[in-house]
Amino acid sequence: MNKLEISISSPHLSGPQSVTRVMALVLLALVPGTLALLWYFGWGVIINIALAVGSAVVAEAIVLRLRGRAVADTLLDLSAVVTGWLLALALPPLLPWWQTVLGSVFAIVIVKQLYGGIGFNPFNPAMAGYVLLLVSFPVTMTRWLAPEVITGQALSFADSLHIIFAGLPPAGQTWDVVSSATPLDLMRSELSQNHMISEIRSSPLWGDYGGRGWEWVGNWFLLGGLFLIWQRVISWRIPVAMLGSLLLVAGLFWAIDHETHPFPAFHLFSGGAILGAFFIATDPVSACTTPRGQLVYGALIGLFVFIIRTWGGYPDAVAFSVLLMNMAAPTIDYYTQPRIFGQRSGSDG
């Protein structure tokens, strides 16, 4: 019996959970929402995912090699795949390929590995990559497609590939024909022209309670998120607090004025709120970890999403809000330490 073996401390049993399993479950939970995106927005979604995931994995492998870490073993934790995948889901489907790759590589190399790799990054890598692209390439980053349920026309796989790699609109068409504003964009620009909600609602981009198509994408991501809660990969606190506070604040303003503030469900089902609440804000590395801290963290993200969407310069705000709260997470954790067993309530934790 060698010395190493005896200095192994108890417990000698270990549970079934592993980082790889956690990440794999996240990927599995992303599948329904991803398929819905594919259904509504075409092949570009899949091409983006392939590009983002591929470049994330390659970038991670290169950096790990440079840092002298075990490459294959670390890649197996699948965290780079998750980062790439989440970034791709946030990108417009026909984004030029090099922008996707740039965002993905930035997320992995600068935001994740330069801070020490998985577990050490203070910011959510996917959202940092998204924000980099958004501020650097505002035109292409806001050039979304209309859901195919509206246009009735689908771009073929080859067309999508061509657009993404050539950076040109389909032959004989202009960008204006192919692209469309997102419902959040539309809401924002129409409101700024003093249009009433009731007028804006007549736009074909509107669905039953959110953006057309978007609302169903949201539903499928919601399903995946509930699956993660059921599997105890994430806690209910962050998504519930975030969506709850978003609903509450949106509801409050909607109650004050129906005509200048959209129906609360619109906020939930027209942009990245659901995806953000279940998959991005819950990224354990950059989020709060104490139970009360998670509630505060989620609620503040929801609040910031509403503030930035309503009064800020960008139509969607999940990425900004998450990054802002990433910064505050350690402080929130510090002040929300739970009462320990046998400690009188009220005394400082």
Binding site: L4, S7, S9, R67, G68, R69, A70, D73, T74
Partner: peptide
Amino acid sequence: PYPAPPAREVAN
């Protein structure tokens, strides 16, 4: 003793 560093840090 101080716990052995994680395997990936040993791997280099």
